[in-house]
Design a protein around this nucleic acid. Structure first.
Lengths: 204, 204
DNA sequence: CCCGATAAATGATCAGTGTTCAATTAAAAT
DNA sequence: ATTTTAATTGAACACTGATCATTTATCGGG
């Protein structure tokens, strides 16, 4: 058939991402299939490849959408929390991963081949999550240490990420660790406290 | 052909792992192929599937071998270091990952399906790496806190792992972080210092 | 109203994958 | 020499990502 008025290019793109996302949630990265996504949306593989011209760009779009949901999840968790916003952040990181295991893992299971590049718009969307953390870390740092917020935030994300990874991939279970989230939070607290102390020394 | 005297079962197994490991190092998890490994060792796919009766068990064997090399790498790095053994540990973690990117990533790219279980021997081999870290962490903790070494070590491995992951998968580059290893070491130092302080308080 | 022009959608086709298993082959036992 | 045993094979199957000539529908102009 030719042009079908029931779906514009943009709509089709969103449809593919939505259905691809659902398929990823159900099957995970290893069993994901572009053909299956095509079936789900009721189009042929050809059409899917017209919109996303290769597998990696499709996965990239789906994973970027996951980042969007993750960002929303974090913001929702933070909204209205007056006291311990750092805890809310760590809990939000973990709970999204726990409630969307396949989705979360797919983000890190996929590695861009060197010949495919990340669209800038995607990189920006992914960066928003970092932005949230940077802002919250900045709040708990003393004035004279605010400039360290970005560096520290990136590192704390990595710390929490490592704990979250081991929690979901079974490494912690194998090691005997039973409360990964609380452990991650403890590490984050220690590093923030150290940063607070550091700057106090320099200010006194 | 029937039984060929040139390779015993055990030898064949080692040959497959060795050649599979080399193939993994060259191509990475996504482009790894059992067929290609069969070609490399000069046997048919059938033979390969007689030794490792599915793909996951083959990858499991290759990745466990990687853990063995990683453990050796860490021990070599630690050997003779009198002063800063914690730094040696973190540097060893990173340098192995950096020098064996595909190999290291494959360990975490592969997820065991629920119906395939990890052989106990493999789990033990993988646990040795943790053992090294636990011992070294115990050394720097005061006597009254030695019992916390295991818990803390697991958490510190996760911390370093998170930083290493972001260093290799491009997340840190995207964020602007340029010295992931030193950053990871800083976090580790803070947490060890906190553990040392904690126990001092309880002992005073 | 019809007819090109344009754009969207198709699916057979290709090269590759993991996996299976009846058939083959070689060695060992009798 | 013959049977038994075990290792090895590779064609076959159902799938995958990717391609692209072909078909199909819509639209603009005569």
């Amino acid at each position: 058939m030719g042009r079908r008025s029931d779906h514009s290019r943009a709509e089709l793109e969103r449809l593919i991402i939505a259905e691809g996302h659902a398929h990823m949630a159900e099957n995970g990265f290893a069993r994901f299939s572009a053909r299956e996504v095509a079936k789900r949306i009721g189009y042929s593989i050809g059409t899917l490849y017209n919109v996303f011209d290769n597998y990696d760009r499709l996965i990239l779009a789906i994973n970027t959408y996951s980042f969007q949901l993750w960002t929303d999840h974090l913001n929702a968790r933070l909204d209205g929390v007056e006291g311990d916003r750092i805890r809310a952040l760590v809990e939000g990181y973990f709970s999204f991963a726990r409630e969307n295991t396949h989705i979360w893992m797919a983000i890190y299971d996929h590695h861009l081949p060197p010949d495919v590049e990340m669209p800038e718009e995607f990189a920006l969307q992914r960066g928003e999550l970092t932005g949230i953390v940077v802002r919250e870390v900045a709040v708990v740092l003393p004035d004279h240490a605010k400039d360290r917020a970005t560096t520290l935030a990136r590192s704390l994300i990595a710390t929490v990420h490592g704990h979250c990874t081991f929690a979901l991939n079974g490494t912690f279970a194998l090691m005997g660790e039973t409360e990964p989230m609380e452990t991650a939070l403890a590490r984050v607290r220690e590093s923030i406290a150290a940063a607070q102390r550091d700057s106090r020394i320099r200010t006194d």
